[in-house]
Amino acid sequence: MKAWEGVGEAYAASYASLCAGTHDDLLRRLGAAEGRRLLDVGSGTGRLAARLMGAGWTVTACEPESTMRAVAAREHPRVSVVDGALPSLPFADAAFDAVTANFVLNHVSDPREAARELARVMVPGGILIATTWVVSPSWFWRSVCQRAGLVATPAGGLAPEKDFERTPAGFGRTLAEGGWPSVAVSELSWTWRATTDELWRSAEGGVASAGAFYLSLDAAERGKFARAFDQLCEEHGDGGAVALDHTAAVASAALDERTGARRTHA
């Protein structure tokens, strides 16, 4: 979570709209709300939680980063946001009818342990949904670095024994190893028409690995990075926006008594 400290405002102005590309699909998978209880883990600035509440769910959002929670409180004041993080959520066993984790398991130190914790807080017969990147925004920033002649250092990757293959099949295996039964995974692709301002806010604001890398540069290197960014946006932009293709793996599973992961939570 260290890479995301203090980036709430920059994230809200940039990647929040990108990550919303899965929201329609998540609502479709969840089905009718009927006032049921839902936990959105790693809720960020509250955009998905607010959408789910609007669809009739009784929503609790859970987000460990304070600036993300501050943005959520301002932009979505009706959403209840709790301070909490995987792999130890501050909720009782079987507390929710559904659990969502949108682009969260790719940011934890142990995805399988985190998957078990997501299952623990869900009632038998509920639904678990999680997403991860197959094609992420990092490809655009790699192009910027190559154009600028900069070598991006890997930022806090997972230990080899904890890592997983960034494909639908690899994500599904990881969740199954974390106790999710009969996982269904599919690919979802969409085009994010990002304005140049949104893209630059993410870098300058330190969002994700690309932003952390930019902030680690000295003044001369930042100048090279900015010039390469401007060149790529000019070459590929259209009307002040750049069309960037992305793909996510979207996984869902239902839990029953035989497969439920339960433990007493202090």
Rank of each mutant, 00 (worst) to 15 (best):
N102D: 10
A61V: 09
A94Y: 04
T153Y: 15
A241W: 06
V7T: 10
G125D: 09
G56D: 05
A92Q: 11
L89W: 01
A85G: 07
E198Q: 11
V144C: 04
E204S: 13
L38Q: 00
S14A: 08
R28W: 03
A72P: 00
P154I: 15
H236D: 06
R173L: 10
V185F: 02
R37N: 10
R112N: 08
C145P: 00
P90V: 05
T67S: 14
S216K: 08
E235W: 11
A169R: 15
L255M: 13
F96Y: 04
Q231K: 14
H23G: 08
R74N: 08
A50I: 15
A210Q: 12
V121D: 02
D83A: 11
L199N: 04
L199M: 12
L30V: 10
G8F: 00
V79Q: 02
E165H: 12
G260H: 12
M68R: 06
L232Q: 01
G179L: 01
G126E: 03
E117D: 09
A243H: 14
E235T: 15
M68V: 00
D40M: 05
L128T: 03
E75P: 05
A253K: 03
C19R: 07
E9H: 11
R69Y: 02
T259E: 10
D24M: 09
A203D: 04
T45F: 09
A98C: 12
A249S: 15
T132A: 13
G44N: 04
R36E: 11
F164G: 03
R112A: 06
V135K: 04
H246P: 06
L158G: 05
F225Q: 01
Y214K: 05
L52P: 03
N106F: 09
K2R: 13
S138F: 11
D163L: 14
S209D: 09
R147I: 08
R69V: 01
A98N: 04
V250T: 07
L158H: 07
P160D: 07
L89A: 04
M122W: 00
E117M: 02
V207F: 04
P181W: 01
K162S: 15
L150Q: 05
V134I: 11
G239Q: 10
Q231P: 14
S216V: 07
N102Q: 10
A3P: 13
A203T: 01
M122P: 13
V108G: 00
A254I: 06
V81M: 06
A20L: 08
L27W: 01
Y11F: 14
V135S: 06
V82P: 06
